[in-house]
Design a protein around this nucleic acid. Structure first.
Lengths: 177, 177
DNA sequence: ACTCGTTGTTTCGAGTTCGAAGCACAACCG
DNA sequence: CGGTTGTGCTTCGAACTCGAAACAACGAGT
C-alpha cells in the first residue's frame, strides 16, 4: 500500500510523507475505524444504542447537572442538527429529558434520567471490556504511557488549530473595534 | 470527563480502565475523529471527493492492475453495498471503470481511469499537507517512531481478533417460500 | 424602549452508510 | 450431468449525518 504514495517526485513540492509517517497515518486511521466499528456493534447489540448516543449518555452521567445542547454536542458531533436528532431519539426512549432553561429561554437543558443512568452503567462494563481487549491488550505499560501522551498532544493541537466547522455563521468579516 | 467512568465498583468484575487508559482512549478517539473530519472537508473542497472515494482511488492508483469489488472494499468500507454505491458515483464521474471479469463472470473488475489518476495526484499533495500539519506537526521523531510502532501492532491485533462483519452468510434457517 | 447583530436550537433536504434479501454464476458432490 | 451450497455483486429500505435556512430570545448601543 505504498508504491508511489510515499514520494511526491515532482521535485517541486518535496512535501511527501516519509514511509514511517505514512505507516503511522494508515495504521492510526484503520485502527480507529476498526475500534469504532466494533464498539458500535457491541453497543447496538448490548443496549440498542449507537456510539453517539452512548457518548451522550456518558457525558450526561459524568456531569453533575444538566447540560445545554451546545455543551453536549461539543466533541461528539460536528453539527448541532445531528444532536437534535439524537436527543430526540434518546428522549423518546426515556433516557434523557429536555427542558427549557430558566436562565436563557433559548437554551435547552438536557438531563439524564434514572433509566438512562441505569442503562448506561449496565452496558459500561461490556464497553470497557471491548475497548480493553481491542486496544490495550497488545500494549505494554510503556506503550500506554507513550500513546496517551502522544494522542493528548495531538488532540489538543488539532483542537486549537482551526476554526471548527461552526466557524462563521455569516460570511461577514469581523472588523476590529 | 472521568468521575465515575474510570472505576467499576461492582467488586465483581473489577475490570475498569484506569485513568491513563481512559485518557488515551478518549484522546485517540477524538483525534482520529478530528483528523478524519478535517481531511474530509479538505478533500471535498479540493476535489469534490469524500474520504472514502479518495481512499478507493488511492488503492486503485497504488495497485498495478484492476481490482475486484471485494478486494477494493476491504479495509475501506464495512459493507459491500456501500462500495457499490460509491463505485457508482466514481464511475459516473469518469474516474473509474467497471467491467465484468473474464475469469469469473460474477466478479466486477474496477480500474482507475487516466482522469481518476490525474485527479488523485492533483489533490494528493494537499491531502498530505493537511495530514502533516494536523497529525505530525506536534510530534517529535521519537513520537513518530513510537506511534507508528504502537498503531501497527494495535491494528494488526484488531484485524486478527474477530470475524469481520461480513462473517457468516449462513443463517441456516433455510425455509421454504 | 427599539433596533440590530448574535446566539441556541430546530426543521428540512440531500447525501451516505449499513444489513437483509435477491440474482447470477461457480464450485463441489453424488 | 443435476442439485446443493457458496461467492460476488447489486437493489432496496431504514437510519444517520451534515449544512443551510428558519426561528426565537438575548444584549449592546442609542
Amino acid at each position: 500500500m505504498s508504491k508511489q504514495l510515499d514520494v511526491v517526485d515532482d521535485g517541486d513540492v518535496g512535501e511527501g510523507l516519509d514511509p514511517r509517517q505514512l505507516g503511522a497515518y494508515f495504521a492510526l486511521s484503520e485502527a480507529a475505524s476498526l475500534l469504532q466499528h466494533h464498539v458500535e456493534q457491541h453497543l447496538r447489540a448490548e443496549g440498542g444504542l449507537s456510539y453517539v448516543q452512548f457518548q451522550l449518555l456518558a457525558r450526561l452521567a459524568d456531569a453533575d447537572g444538566p447540560l445545554t445542547m451546545t455543551q453536549l454536542a461539543d466533541g461528539v458531533v460536528y453539527s448541532r442538527s445531528g444532536l437534535t436528532y439524537q436527543a430526540g431519539l434518546l428522549e423518546k426512549a426515556g433516557l434523557i429529558t429536555r427542558s427549557p432553561s430558566p436562565d436563557d429561554e433559548r437554551a435547552t437543558l438536557v438531563e439524564i434520567t434514572d433509566a438512562g443512568r441505569e442503562l448506561f452503567f449496565r452496558i459500561l462494563p461490556g464497553h470497557v471490556q471491548v475497548v480493553r481487549s481491542m486496544l490495550f491488550d497488545p500494549l505494554s505499560e510503556d506503550d500506554l504511557e507513550h500513546l496517551g501522551d502522544i494522542m493528548v498532544r495531538v488532540r489538543d493541537h488539532m483542537r486549537a488549530l482551526p476554526p471548527r466547522s461552526a466557524a462563521a455563521r455569516k460570511g461577514r468579516a469581523a472588523r476590529s473595534s
